[in-house]
């Protein structure tokens, strides 16, 4: 256990250093959510005027949606590092050392979680600058970030599970992209679900993206319903555990196939 924690730190440090050395990647990671916030924020500004929308300021409504959406988008890329490491022989090098097997995946998850936090804080700051006020305060922001991280853990593990199976960037990114946009729009990320058609409401109820968005939005509002939030965070946690288990299994399959 101590070894796994130690090694997770070593692996995380490796990925975070690599991240810092790719300014273009950091730039896109930061700029993209900002663009979403501006773009959707301006495009749908008057959507709050629809009767029954139930929110006064669209930016306040949108912020948890874009935080979760950005977490989804950036975590989907996680498997690329696995493919690069397999192709460069880095993965096999780790596997012939006493490196904790779990730490190889954990390092990637920590890197993604750090990206999630940075993205979320920037978006909250911009939303506030654009006039949004979050009644839920710091606690609300923390809950939103936790929801984004839990969803991100699931999705990066999904990407990490695909990578050793498919072994090509194109196929992993293809599948990940195929999932992200529909999953976002079949949730309450940018639109009040109660105003969406019935079939979308039904799908949204089982969509983890929606769980994360609703938990965050509830926590950012006034008088949050903590059992509503707790149930969704718990569901996200269970999903994250299931997905990380899946990625561990496909990683073992890769080790057997070497």
């Amino acid at each position: 256990m101590a070894t796994t924690l130690d090694h997770t730190w070593f692996m995380s440090r490796r990925h975070l250093r690599a991240l810092v050395r790719q300014p273009a990647y950091i730039g896109i990671t930061i700029v993209q959510p900002v663009v979403w916030l501006f773009l959707f924020g301006s495009l749908f500004k008057r959507i709050v005027e629809i009767p029954g929308f139930g929110a006064g300021n669209y930016i306040e409504f949108l912020t948890p949606g874009v935080i979760v959406m950005s977490a989804l988008f950036s975590n989907g890329w996680s498997g690329m590092t696995i493919i690069e490491d397999i192709d460069a022989g880095v993965m096999d090098r780790f596997l012939v050392t006493p490196a904790s097997r779990g730490s190889i995946m954990n390092g990637l998850l920590v890197q993604q979680a750090v990206i999630d936090v940075i993205q979320a804080l920037i978006m909250v700051g911009i939303a506030i600058a654009m006039g949004a006020r979050f009644a839920g305060g710091i606690v609300g922001v923390i809950v939103t970030i936790v929801a984004g991280i839990l969803l991100g853990l699931s999705f990066s593990s999904f990407s990490n599970a695909l990578a050793p199976l498919l072994r090509t960037r194109e196929s992993v990114i293809g599948i990940v992209q195929f999932v992200t946009l529909p999953a976002t729009f079949l949730s309450g990320a940018v639109m009040q679900p109660s105003l969406a058609p019935g079939w979308i409401q039904t799908i949204a109820r089982y969509n983890p993206v929606n769980w994360a968005v609703l938990a965050g939005r509830e926590a950012l509002g006034s008088n949050p319903d903590w059992s509503f939030i707790g149930i969704r965070l718990l569901a996200l946690l269970i999903l994250a555990v299931a997905c990380t288990t899946l990625s561990t299994l496909t990683f073992r399959a890769y080790q057997r196939a070497v």
Partner: peptide, 17 residues
């Protein structure tokens, strides 16, 4: 694993580090 060192054909060097 503790007793051996291994240098594979693909060097396994992390080129970003």
């Amino acid at each position: 694993r503790r007793a051996i060192g291994s240098v594979a054909q693909r060097s396994g060097v992390d080129r970003q580090a």
